[in-house]
Design a protein around this nucleic acid. Structure first.
Lengths: 407, 407
DNA sequence: AAGATTTGATAGATCGATCAAAAAATTGCG
DNA sequence: CGCAATTTTTTGATCGATCTATCAAATCTT
């Protein structure tokens, strides 16, 4: 990266102003002798040459112009070969392709973005990790899927961080104004989310992973996973295998997702309203809370014979409680299918993140291509999708081992 | 985003070539009547106007020129206010800043990158997730830290995916040639890693998270965590608390990291070579493998009274084994301090990812700034750092609950 | 006070690509 | 063949910023 020295560099070394350097070169007579020799020394030392532009024969990346020269066509034709090959005659095209290959040419991403006025980049905010969260890995896994799918469309995923929604708004504004990203993916929408209204008002293209939880949220694109259906499936599965009283351990009422998931249990549990109160608990998302709630439920006169939980964290705690109460085989089902569920053999409801990512891109960019679609107007047909999760059945690893070891 | 219609659009609608459209406008006489009227209809329908460039007064983002106009200075001065404020007089500067504020101006990232020839972007590959890996979340957490630290330097983190090192090389080449990223962070280095030699040869700036495991790996920048020291600390801690025979469950010999971590145990265990063979096991990184190995060790005539594992996965399995063998209080220490460790109350050795990220950036860009430093030459002083991990002590949650419930 | 030097602001070129339109070459048809 | 129409290629402008060198005004020397 040995850049050509500039007047600026010479000035710094000789400890004079740029103007003085210029004078030494163009009208040496007006510069005092001492200064002049100091400047000349600096020029010598750095190997500065006035019109340095000419000899930048340093290993420059080939440009479209170089390709054009080699293939004996105009640079526009080279551009066409790359961007709309069908408009170029076969003979010409192969000649240009050969030249591209020979030089190892690749279009300069920034130049292209400047001209086309699109960055082909999707901004994704990484929210801070909650201290004990094992579920938050969902975002990480979603980002992976999004990146994979984006690669296929020649889109890039750029990450940024922000501590809270307000800070996120500020970051998005800057990224958008600087044309750093031309679409954004929101995640973890909540009641009274300020981001959506703002983005809609600013007309910045986005899609949210998570449905709006407020009736007054403006119309926008979103994709979400149907937690209610997922939990419902889990409960039906347990009952089909003989469970009579399926208990529920969920989140507090402030969580839209939590209420949604709980409603799936309510609908499928087959319990009376009174029993529903008896066999359910609400708690923060934490392993020890899961254990606590499960212990409570299991010490009822008629304890539940299966448990469904709003998260793998709670479910993991519930499994511990089950073992502690001497019921290691009690069926427990979690939610999110985090790696830990696979590790301990916990059944869990899996979010189809592949599909979520694909849908998010489809909503933003259409079925294919990398032109971002504008945010939908109020009157437009639905621009959102609710995807069905899938129950992943597993056999708890402690039971597997019991079997293996005969213990 | 209602773009002005172009000749291209008109041509498509009228189903004629662009040239014909041009002729209809400029020399109508040479176009046959039927064609001409079809083209005119299309022009009308789209509301096409020949010199549309003039009236693009649609909400364009303000440019440096707009700011210059409002502040009555040249655009170069505006640029100076942004990039080297000290060279601009106070009065002028505040006038320009006011204009910037009023217009909500923000430099166009791509234009700047094109001119400055640097993308200020770091490329990071997301390796595919191993099916059961709970440790692989390390990369995700590292990426988070890297993004945070990069934000502070006005650098961007761009993700890409690749299935294997060879594919990764190809992706890096394309991203580098297209000036999409000007530095890369490698992770998960392994024996005979082909990426490093290639990057060094191509002179593409990079740093690897993970030291080279081969003697013949060329000199390059790297940062890593001292697994040996971390495990050593864990073993010392256990022995200081009375453990006589600390066992080890680690990975197979093909893992550089695994061998490194094991050596920490060997050094601090205080066991004879024979006992070391007795009290250690090698296995793939998997929870059930951890349980299996731990069961073996615990059924020895003189079982170990504490266990240290190469990963949280193995440690989690070992905890299960301990409970199954009726020794729920057996001290177990894992590695990586994954969220799951916090969740179940497993002590673990924590990698200082904050520091790893900061060091990676410092090696790539120097103590501050966003100019990439070239790869170091063979003779240069060490350009790598080995960071010390930290033991996080926890009390197993099942024990906490035992205490609470009196069970 | 005249000349040397620095500070402040500016003009013009340039980064590497695509867009828009026009020109040139080719094809089709009566 | 001759002209209209199409296909292929080229010219010139442009995206929005920074780089380079220089001019102009202010400040310092002797």
């Amino acid at each position: 990266m040995t850049r050509m020295p500039t007047v600026e560099d010479v000035a710094r070394v000789a400890q004079v102003s740029r103007q003085t350097v210029s004078n030494v070169i163009n009208s040496p007579s007006i510069v005092r002798e001492a200064t002049r020799s100091r400047v000349l020394a600096a020029i010598d030392e750095l190997g500065y040459r006035p019109n340095a532009a000419a000899d930048q024969e340093i290993t420059r990346m080939p440009t479209i112009q170089d390709v054009a020269g080699l293939a004996h066509v105009s640079k526009q034709t080279v551009s066409n070969v790359i961007n709309s090959p069908s408009t170029v005659r076969e003979a010409t095209r192969s000649r240009v392709l050969a030249a591209i290959d020979e030089l190892g040419y690749r279009p300069h991403a920034s130049a292209r973005r400047l001209r086309t006025r699109k960055s082909s980049t999707i901004g994704v905010r990484l929210a801070p990790l909650p201290p004990d969260g094992i579920s938050s890995a969902i975002l990480d896994r979603f980002v992976r899927k999004l990146t994979e799918q984006a690669d296929a469309r020649d889109l890039r995923v750029m990450l940024f961080t922000a501590g809270d929604p307000v800070e996120e708004i500020d970051r998005i504004r800057r990224l958008h104004e600087g044309s750093d990203a031309d679409a954004f993916v929101l995640s973890a929408t909540e009641y009274g989310d300020p981001r959506i209204a703002w983005l809609v008002e600013q007309d910045i293209p986005f899609v949210s992973f998570g449905r709006p939880w407020d009736a007054k949220t403006p119309h926008h694109r979103w994709v979400d996973v149907d937690g209610r259906a997922g939990v419902g499936e889990a409960v039906r599965h347990l009952r089909a295998h003989g469970a009579q009283r399926v208990g529920w351990i969920g989140w507090t009422e402030t969580s839209g997702n939590g209420n949604e998931r709980r409603s799936g249990w309510e609908a499928e549990s087959g319990l009376s309203a009174t029993d529903q109160r008896t066999y359910s608990r609400r708690a923060p998302d934490d392993v020890t809370e899961g254990t606590r709630c499960a212990m409570e439920l299991l010490s009822l006169p008629e304890p539940p014979d299966a448990l469904v939980c709003a998260s793998d964290s709670l479910a993991l705690g519930a499994m511990t409680a089950a073992r502690m109460s001497g019921r290691p085989a009690l069926p427990v089902i979690g939610f999110d299918d985090t790696p830990i569920a696979a590790a301990v053999g916990l059944s869990s409801v899996e979010q189809p993140l592949d599909e979520v990512a694909a849908t998010a891109l489809a909503l933003l960019f259409g079925p294919e291509g990398d032109d971002v679609l504008p945010n939908p107007g109020d009157d437009e047909e639905p621009t959102n999708r609710l995807l069905a999760p899938r129950l992943v059945e597993r056999r708890p690893s402690h039971l597997q081992l019991d079997a293996t070891t005969g213990d």
